[in-house]
Design a protein around this nucleic acid. Structure first.
Lengths: 95, 95
DNA sequence: CTTAAATGTCAGCGATCGCTGACATTCCCA
DNA sequence: TGGGAATGTCAGCGATCGCTGACATTTAAG
């Protein structure tokens, strides 16, 4: 599933936990956090600590993949000529 | 790239920023955070806020995918019989 | 070498983290 | 329907967040 918001993450974690038949206390111990933290993250807590989130995903066996390399730029894809670089340079050496 | 640690995330963000020819200040404005935050995250700051991290990835056009559904359990894969459920139940109804 | 941009460091501030422990509520078997 | 497990809520605490602004260092172009 694509993760766009803290709520998305909370849903993934909760679903996974249930699929594994774990209760919040047990999961909390595995991750090394308090039960309160598990409650908060499952509710989409937006300010959770990055490292704890990663540990939670690991404890649940959920790999997290960042599609770097991605061609997001609107317009023509993957050209041999790096337009961005050319424009950036042009802006600077404004003779 | 698989994200396992805050450092992994920092690397992905920095690489992507450079590929897009952005400096830290510009990226910070796009994300809506301070330049200090960008510096910290690129250095692998482990306690960064989840929501800000997600906004950063979005600003950089990096989709984040969580492989739920994954069969992580060691042992035989995807059986029709849910051993975990059976064991969990057995533990409870300890006659 | 000179210079400017980019990056990194530091300190101080208000806000919020995650933790604990007690209690309230909801689920769900038997 | 009764009762225990699971889940959710609250408050108070020390620790750390992310922010600002100034300054130091590194990088890159000329």
């Amino acid at each position: 599933m694509l993760i766009r918001t803290p709520a998305d993450l909370g849903a993934v974690i909760r679903d996974r936990r249930k699929r594994l038949k774990l209760d919040q206390s047990t999961l909390a111990k595995r991750i090394g956090v308090s039960r309160q933290w598990v409650i908060d993250i499952e509710h989409g807590h937006p300010r959770a600590e990055l490292a704890l989130v990663l540990r939670a995903l690991d404890a649940l066996g959920i790999p997290l993949d960042a599609d770097d390399q991605q061609m997001t730029s609107r317009g023509s894809a993957r050209s041999a000529i790096d337009i961005n670089a050319i424009v950036a340079k042009a802006k600077k050496s404004r003779t």
